[in-house]
Structures are given as C-alpha cells and as structure tokens.
Design a protein around this nucleic acid. Sequence first.
DNA 1: TGCCAGGCCGGGT
DNA 2: ACCCGGCATGGC
Length: 215
Amino acid sequence: MLMRIYKTLFDAYGPQHWWPADHPEEVVIGAILTQNTAWTNVEKAIQELKRAGCLGFRKIDATSIEDLMQWIRPAGTYRQKAEYLKAFARWLITEHDGDLQRALQGDADTVRRKLLALKGIGPETADAILLYAGNRSTFVVDAYTMRVLRRHGLIESNGAGYESVRGLLMQALPHDVQLFNEYHALLVEVGKRHCKAAAQCEGCPLEHLEHNANL
DNA sequence: TGCCAGGCCGGGT
DNA sequence: ACCCGGCATGGC
C-alpha cells in the first residue's frame, strides 16, 4: 500500500527536486529555520543570510548572535533559531573540524543520536539533515505524513508517535535514498494541496484509494 | 482577524 | 511515556 501511494503521487506530480538549496550547509540551515514555519518566510531569512555573507557555519560561528537574530527574523521564533544555528556551528567545528559531510558519515543510528542530542534538533530535523544534506537513507516524517497516513487508515488517529511511524515506513519500504527523498517531498506536496481540510480531497491523486476525509 | 506553517524545548503529570 | 504552553513572523 505504501509503495502504491508513492507510485500514484510520483505519477501525478513527478520528481520534486528536493531539498531546495544550493549547498548541504544551506540544507541544515533551512531545516532549522523551517521548524513550524512557512517556507516562504524561510526564503526571506535565507536571502538575508546570503546578503550578509553568513550562509555557512563558519560564518555563523564567527558572527554575533544579535546580528544573526536580525537576519533570520522573517522565519519567526528567531531568538531560539539563532541559538540553534549557533549550537550546530559550534558542534560542527569543534567535533568535526567544520566538515559537514564527514560529520554525517559513519553508522547512521549513531549519527542520528548525535544530531538529536543537539539543542534545536528534534527527530524531523535530524532526519531531514541526514537525508537531504547527507544522502543517508532515513525517512522524514512530518505533519503532512501523519495526516495522509491517518486519512488512509495506515496509522491510528492517536498513539502514532514520530519514531513508530518512521519505523513503519522504513520497515515497509526499501532503504533507498532517492525513494525516501521523493516520497517525503511528494507527501508535503499532496498534503499542502489536499490534506488540510476534508473538502480539499476532491481531485487528490489518492482520492480513489481507501480513505476517511474526516480525519 | 485569527489561525496556521515542512517543530522543538522545558516543565509538568 | 505523553501532554502542554511558549516561541514569533508573514500570508490568507
């Protein structure tokens, strides 16, 4: 069923070309900035960082947190996010000599736990970093994933925590970076278009599959 | 005009 | 192990 959903979405929307960033470090920055925030606001913040020449962790480490806060302000919760960016930069430099690719190599679970230990990096952000910055095969679960899977009866309406849903997906699907890349992006796309309110179900590529619009 | 967006933290049950 | 309030901007 999960593979069927994937094929249906891919046939409908095609490749999504995620993550929208020019550089792996920009992926991490975007992943932190987009927490509970519309991507359009993140784009403004990233433009500000670029304009300030601060779109990288060496620069973020070297700049003042006050300046950083002002640049990323459009992304919302800017005091916390500035602190998170600073923490990531410090960790990357002290533990991995500023080399992001090297930081994301090695045993995947070990790297994941190290990311989760950082302030501001929760499960979704950690998986987004692993998958989209590190090309590691992990599934990124987000609010849209939950809604779509609930709506199609693949998870319970409650009691479906992040780790259990991720486990379900990773146990049912082949561990392929490209598959996980597209799948998450496609779920976000169909979620935005069709999974906010029940009325949006009309015209959804998954409409003919079994589902409950009132979830 | 209020509600929400590609969550996470800290403190409380 | 869950549950909840707080964080904060810009768009509809």
